[in-house]
Design a protein around this nucleic acid. Structure first.
Lengths: 295, 295
DNA sequence: CCAATTATCTGACTAGAGTCAGAGATATGG
DNA sequence: CCATATCTCTGACTCTAGTCAGATAATTGG
């Protein structure tokens, strides 16, 4: 059976079984949309959820959301009040009845999950859960989108800030961005270089920059993967994509430096065919330097 | 993370990614229901699909189906004509345009599958597909429903017929049901015994019968699992459930006989704690006899 | 042949999901 | 303080999905 047929078969079985799980919401006598909304409002912290955030997360039309909320208000499950700091913004919060109702949804969905796990033997159950974890993880990995982004863009800025924050927490002696060699945005822009950001659900979860040095080897910098997405192979993917970008921009050799505390990164560079070389840039925070000849 | 949270997490990720796959149908400018119908009609053999069969498979209201078909007819994708042998029944068949349209649906769904597999490395892809197979198999296993069924019921009859057919094909010397010890239906009915049938999507895919013998050990008979559902642990499940039924009906010891060609069954009985015993019933087709003391 | 059954079709509904064009209130930058 | 932008709400829609009560035609068992 070819790959596509396998995915289709998976799709058919899973939507059938899991679809019942979604219908479980309906069984509480409320339209699916309202139940989802109730759930999402309850998922946010005690302070309630801003409507604009709900709209974004659930991808709802503002008029539609408004009407759904009124229905939930009419049932006494939700309160909507203006935000204290900006009264254009409104904040939805569950009433005690809403909290109870959400817990009820929770329980009936638990029961449906039980209906899937229940008929299986212990060994089958363990195996199913492990396979689900795998599917979940790998589908998340495949949902990550890597795009060329301008280094001055908000997503790029946030990535680099997260990168520096992480360095500061990992390096033995801390990290002071002003001591490292600064890179003006323009050096990460074509034709001088490029900058890639990985997005998951619209949020940046990784980045990598490339600086060209004319006939000299190009330099890979700012390789970062968010802690929340480690183990998805995202580092390898960014490395593959930045190497492809380097080739496209005319580089045949790439170099990079790294700190000895970044052990996963070092291992990754080695498995991707990078060879250790002597210090080529005098970067004060670097302990290792690598080089790779691109095919 | 507990089991239920793992399933929920899986659910969320998968419906999000796979949902896009279903929406792919929509992107061809046709309502999802009609696309599904078009697909299902095309899935059947060249002769077309009987409406009653479509209704059953897609669980559609007869009026609803009728209207959907008219819409597809209006688009020139489907022909509906009376069945040659019974003109109450009508048969839907794709026109050449319908076949082309279905192929197009196929292609755009392929592309979406590609979108899931594409961003992964070869190793990740292999692992995802393997995990999907596992999930698919185990979810199918958990969708099997085992019920007590009257031995005269159509589902029970079909199961037993399938069982005998299989014996005939496996036994070295064939199998003649009249030579085996006949069991009247009543002996598989409470309080004399019981009969379980396993259903998948409404179809019987396995069965097992129990005959009580007063103070003597009860007897397990007609243990059958459809070839299409082997490897789902269904045999073990039927055995577990019939043992539970035996205990419930007051038996503390169960016996059974089996033929030497049924090697998987023999292995299963051993792993479930059955001990070999001498011939206790003179069954002409039996080579092994087993017994188990129920807790 | 007649009554009951089976298979489909038609018309008349309901409900959920979602879209779109403003209106109204509030904030913000110059 | 004014023009502009932001956020939410209202009213008026459309579409899809799905239900239900007959009507109609063909088949089958007695």
């Amino acid at each position: 059976m070819d790959d596509i047929a396998r995915v289709r078969r998976f799709n058919r079985t899973v939507t059938e079984r899991i679809g019942a799980l979604d219908d479980g919401y309906l069984s509480r006598g409320r339209p699916l949309g309202q139940s989802r909304l109730l759930w999402e409002i309850g998922a946010s912290s005690g302070a309630g959820a801003e409507l604009r955030a709900l709209r974004e997360r659930l991808e709802l039309d503002s008029g539609y959301l408004s009407r759904q909320l009124r229905a939930l208000e009419a049932d006494g499950l939700v309160n909507v009040a203006p935000a204290p700091d900006d009264s254009r913004v409104r904040v939805a919060q569950l009433t005690p009845a809403g909290v109870a109702e959400r817990a009820e949804l929770d329980r009936s969905s638990d029961a449906l999950v039980g209906g899937i796990l229940g008929p299986l033997s212990d060994r089958q159950r363990e195996r199913l859960l492990a396979a689900m974890d795998d599917v979940e993880r790998l589908m998340t990995a495949s949902a990550v989108e890597v795009r060329v982004v301008d280094p001055a863009d908000a997503a790029a800025r946030r990535s680099v800030t997260a990168y520096f924050t992480e360095l500061a927490s990992r390096f033995d002696l801390g990290f002071d961005p002003t001591r490292t060699r600064q890179t003006p945005d323009d050096e990460f822009r074509e034709p001088n270089g490029t900058f890639l950001v990985a997005f998951l659900h619209g949020e940046p979860v990784g980045c990598v920059g490339l600086k060209l040095h004319g006939d000299e080897p190009a330099e890979i910098k700012r390789m970062w993967v968010a802690a929340s997405t480690r183990g998805l192979g995202l580092g390898s993917r960014l490395l593959r994509e930045i190497e492809a970008a380097a080739l496209r921009l005319g580089a045949t050799v790439v170099r990079l430096d790294t700190n000895r505390t970044l052990t996963e990164a070092i291992a990754m560079y080695r498995t991707h065919g990078y060879d250790e070389i002597p210090d080529f840039n005098g970067e004060p925070y670097a302990d290792f330097w690598f080089e790779k000849w691109l095919a």
